[in-house]
Simulated scan of single mutants.
Amino acid sequence: MYHPYFRGKQFELITVRETAELMARVGFVPIIEPVKETLNGLDRALTAVCEVGGSVIVIVNPYHGDHAEDGAGISALLKKKYLGKKGVSAGILLKEHMTRTDALACYAAHKDHEPVFVHAGFTEGKAFAEDIVDFLPETQHVFFEKHCGTLYRKHYRGSRRILLRDGFERRRNADHPPVEMFSELHLTYQDDGMDGFGDFLIVGDDYTEGGGPAYAVAIHLTFINPEKDDVMYIYHFVSDTKDTPTDPAGKFAQALNKLIAKLNTGASHLVETSSIGEFRKLHAEGHFPGLGQVKKLSLIHHIQTLADYLG
């Protein structure tokens, strides 16, 4: 059903760990693209998923980060600790400059890990579908929507197909509107002939190695709007102070005040997730937990919101 796509930074992996039980219970399958050289965080996340009987797809040839040139370390981890463990699949990222021969070789190398093809700029989609026609019904394919139009996806009809859509509009925090549409894919993926859907949560598909100083602090929270046919929208609660890189705690307090004010209207449509409870607690205590923790709370809220709606 739902496949949240995580780039494997610290707080993304912590999010996977902390929501593993919930995702397993409602049938969500996270996709993780490891981007950090050390794989300890990935290992802990996979262990958490396995312990609750969940499923996860791990990209073995990342496009971004420290493993972009060589994913051998990821493959070695899967082989050493997760070979034969049901639910851990190897994700093969089909990138722009990848050949069909490369893709088939990667598939063969990870055949014992229930490989999943993740289409992200691959230019030989039709020919590759013909290459694997004999076992196409046994395969699973995840499509980055911006790279894979309807015709491209049509070549893989008969397999299990997942569509990934980036609902997060990336811009400077200071430039975010108070609220905007996020996605309707949770409502329409079956109409598109897909078996499941995914997104990049409240981070977006654009990858950056690290953030600079926060001139503005924003809290991003998604919600299902019953007044708009259950389309998903996203709030951006942005600090009033936007012209200095100092005082992130003060700017977080400004953004948090806006969130609490919206909640107090009784008409926010925000699900009372554990993250909302934590934001209420932070407001009451006047505490700033750090921007990484704020991001994690927003990620968890997104997953819990979709679980509440779909589960």
Results as ranks from 00 to 15, higher is better:
H3Q: 12
K9Q: 02
L13A: 09
A20N: 02
V29M: 13
I31K: 06
I32E: 13
P34T: 05
N40Q: 11
A48F: 00
V49H: 00
C50F: 01
E51T: 00
I57S: 06
Y63N: 11
H67C: 01
A68G: 01
I74D: 03
L77N: 04
K79F: 02
K81W: 02
G84T: 13
V88Q: 03
L93F: 08
K95W: 05
R100H: 04
C106T: 09
C106Q: 14
A108G: 00
A109L: 08
K111T: 10
K111I: 07
F117D: 05
H141N: 13
F144W: 12
K146W: 03
H147I: 00
Y156Q: 03
R160Y: 01
I162Q: 03
D166I: 01
D166M: 09
D175S: 11
L185F: 05
Y189D: 02
D191W: 02
G193S: 10
D195K: 00
G198M: 12
I202D: 05
D205L: 09
E209L: 13
Y215C: 05
V217T: 08
F223S: 07
D229G: 04
Y233I: 07
I234P: 04
T244S: 15
P248W: 05
G250R: 08
T265S: 07
T265C: 02
S268G: 00
L270F: 07
V271E: 12
S274M: 08
L291H: 09
I303V: 15
G311K: 08
